[in-house]
Simulated assay, not measured.
Amino acid sequence: MSETSPTSRALQLLELLQARRFWPGPELAERLGVTERTLRRDVDRLRAIGYSVAARRGPDGGYELSTGTELPPLVFTPDEAMALAAAAASAAAGGTSGEVTLTALAKLEQVMPQGARGRVRALRAAVSLGAAPDTPPLDASVLAALALACRDGERMRLRHVSGPSTSGEGDGEESTRRVEPVALVPRHGRWYLVCWDLDREDWRVLRVDRIRRADATGLRFTPRRVPGGDAAAFVEERMRAQPLHAATIRIAAPITDVTARMAGYARDFSPVAGDAQATDWRIADVRLEVLAGALLWLVWPFRVLDSPELSALLRERSARFAAAAD
């Protein structure tokens, strides 16, 4: 097949349209090395096989790949296909829709070049599905909409739910956010959106699983520079800045016994003045559940000295544990 054949040009055109949201007609024709008339014929070829290519007329006219009712074939470079395969294998191994992800990975393997197919097959064979991580469900359509907004520099209107309510039961308040999305960052089994909040005029890091809707506005913006220049580092910094829940646990055992058993995976133990048979353990985390989980390691009687929130959580969860044991 010739490099300048209509089929070859159509594939190249498809790759360009998938790489960028909008192409001016003259620029797209120049990239393909054809006239604008030939470009229009190549666009018609893509439409004939199921791609929805929208044309904008006028001096600022051009082409963009728009949403269709069916999923037509996609074009990936070998490097893109390998990156996608690695991401799918990682998601499956993490328990995120594992069976469905492996099925998609198998389909991708079938259409890859021979040289890359063996590596993808090895990836798929090496994946071992474990228990699903204890993370909130994620709306894939919301994640996809945010990814497109980050790529295209489009303002979004979000329906966002804050953290747990003040009673600790159910979600917090729902609010509308007008934002300029800049980056999506995966951390610790969750996705985070780094964005500029137009109403608060400040940077925000929002958990994607707490975004109920993500509506495009059609308004473009010039992306601002994330503080520090690195979105992932910015998310880590914000997470570290979250208020810590801290508690002192009084353990009914000498510090020598406690450290002998737990020094390999815990620290911050201290003796209790005037009581050689007691040890204090200082624990802290941004989530109360993590503190409660740490207490499962203790084999001695203990009590919480200074955290009403942790005490309330233990009382509430103790009934569930007792019911499970029965």
Rank of each mutant, 00 (worst) to 15 (best):
A233H: 13
S167A: 07
D202M: 04
P254A: 00
Y265G: 00
G95K: 03
E27Q: 12
T7R: 09
A233W: 11
G115V: 06
E15M: 08
E36K: 11
T248A: 05
D285V: 09
V299K: 12
R178Y: 06
S90P: 02
G58N: 07
G218W: 07
A312P: 10
G293Y: 13
R204G: 02
A246K: 15
L71D: 06
G33I: 02
R119T: 12
R9D: 01
A88K: 15
F76D: 11
G228D: 08
F221C: 00
P243L: 09
R187T: 00
L206N: 02
Q12S: 04
Y265V: 02
L16P: 10
L74Q: 14
P113L: 04
A319M: 09
L158V: 05
D134P: 01
V120G: 04
I251F: 14
M112T: 13
A278D: 14
D44R: 14
A132S: 12
G25L: 06
V208H: 04
W297P: 00
S311H: 11
L28K: 12
R124N: 05
W23G: 01
R187C: 00
L138D: 02
A83H: 08
D202C: 02
T259Q: 14
C195L: 07
E36R: 15
A323L: 14
P73K: 04
A106I: 01
T96Y: 15
P6L: 03
I255C: 11
R207W: 04
T176F: 08
A312M: 03
R212L: 13
V127I: 03
R240A: 01
E15W: 15
L198S: 06
A54K: 11
R21V: 02
F321Q: 14
P301R: 13
L74S: 07
V272P: 15
D197M: 02
S5A: 09
R151L: 07
L65A: 03
V299F: 08
P6M: 04
F321M: 14
D139G: 01
H188D: 03
L28S: 05
R207F: 02
T101W: 15
S167F: 06
D209Q: 02
R155Y: 01
D285E: 12
L123Q: 05
V127P: 05
A29S: 10
S175R: 13
G98F: 12
P164W: 10
P186S: 01
F22I: 02
D44F: 07
E80P: 08
A324T: 14
A246L: 14
L288C: 01
A145S: 13
Q242V: 04
V75E: 08
P301F: 09
R178E: 06
G293I: 09
P72D: 07
